[in-house]
């Protein structure tokens, strides 16, 4: 595997979602031109018959470094990964659209 390491159990620190991952890093195997913009926990997409398709499970929050899943209730990506608690703390630094989105959740 190029780049990052592989294998283990990924567990979201916020929602507890837990599932095995097969790769951690920015360049999952056999993805060619596709690159990830963050170091992510990745598995083979279990819902695709194609062996090469990957699924990003989560990554670390760029602020608090907690492992969080990519689910919209736990984190969001805006040039970097932020866990929702960190987003809420600095909500005013985020653009209007995101503020509205987060407000809707509460």
């Amino acid at each position: 595997m190029e780049g990052g390491g592989g294998g283990g159990e990924f567990s979201c620190r916020l929602c507890g979602l837990s599932t095995p991952f097969s790769y951690f890093g920015q360049k999952p195997p056999n993805t060619r031109a596709v690159v990830l913009l963050e170091e992510s926990y990745v598995m083979k997409d279990p819902f695709s018959p194609d062996k090469e398709k990957f699924l990003v499970l989560g990554s670390s929050c760029s602020l608090c470094a907690k492992s969080v899943c990519v689910g919209t209730d736990c984190s969001l990506f805006y040039t970097r990964r932020f866990c929702l608690p960190c987003v809420k703390e600095r909500l005013d630094q985020f653009p209007q659209q995101i503020q509205a989105e987060v407000a809707k959740k509460k």
Partner: peptide, 23 residues
């Protein structure tokens, strides 16, 4: 902002929400 500036782009673009890039 309570201290740290996150340095996020001011103008919103849906593009920034995507954690994937294609070279």
């Amino acid at each position: 902002a309570g201290g740290v500036d996150l340095g996020l782009p001011k103008e919103y673009d849906a593009r920034y929400r995507i954690n994937i890039s294609v070279y």
